[in-house]
């Protein structure tokens, strides 16, 4: 555990909190991609299958991981519920149209072909890593289609990008402090994932410095 990792995890939780806050305060889910949220739910459910077999009391880190894993699954399920049931009428159904097959199928293929160990759980785990790296794409697509989003929604995406950036720093840190740290799947997928936010950040900061709502050209 290092500060980058801890900061990344906390920022990840914070981003979900910001998203829930946006939905609760505005009582609408306009500008939020249900497709991205459902992909995240899929990512968490597949990655954290090990919850079923891990004793959370084995170590402090296991307990920490278990708490976060349950939190991520529960909160993303809750957001999907809010979007599909409670605030259904406000959902940007006409604009949230990115074809997720183009993401799920390649992630399945990548997971099947490139994994650490040839076991069911390792293949599903690798799939979840590849899936997460591109899960934000429907959200970014919706964003550029509508052109403008509420501040809290843009803060949400910014926090997610920040969480990814901190994870990259965590890996750099671990690479130099742990002699046998060789996690190429996380590095490749994580770098792709973080790079996806680059364009968003450019416009985010451009608009923030002007104190405006996020507006894309």
């Amino acid at each position: 555990m290092n500060l980058f990792r801890l900061g990344g995890d906390l920022l990840h939780v914070f981003s979900i909190f910001v998203l829930t806050l946006k939905i609760k305060t505005s009582k609408n889910v306009a500008g939020i991609s249900l497709r991205t949220q459902q992909l995240y739910l899929l990512v968490f459910c597949t990655r954290y299958l090990d919850l079923l077999f891990t004793n959370p009391f084995r170590s402090g880190l296991t307990m920490y991981n278990t708490v976060f894993k349950i939190l991520f699954i529960a909160s993303s399920a809750y957001i999907v519920y809010l979007m599909r049931k409670k605030y259904k009428q406000t959902y940007s159904v006409k604009d949230d149209t990115f074809r997720v097959e183009f993401l799920i199928v390649p992630a399945c293929l990548a997971g099947t072909l490139f994994h650490y160990r040839n076991t069911f759980f390792e293949i599903v785990w690798a799939f979840s890593i590849y899936m997460e790296s591109v899960a934000i794409i429907p959200q970014l697509y919706l964003l550029q289609k509508t052109g403008e989003v509420e501040n809290l929604t843009s803060h949400y995406i910014a926090c997610l990008g920040g969480y990814r950036a901190l994870y990259l720093l965590n890996w750099v840190w671990r690479f130099f402090t742990e002699p046998r740290y060789r996690h190429w799947i996380e590095w490749i997928a994580g770098t792709i994932q973080t790079a996806l936010y680059a364009d968003f950040f450019y416009y985010y900061f451009l608009n923030k410095t002007k104190g405006q709502k996020l507006k894309l050209p």
Binding site: D9, F68, K69, F72, E122, Y167, N170, E186
Partner: peptide, 10 residues
Amino acid sequence: RRQLRIHDEL
């Protein structure tokens, strides 16, 4: 390499 790789990150 360890027999069972335990993913220690989220």
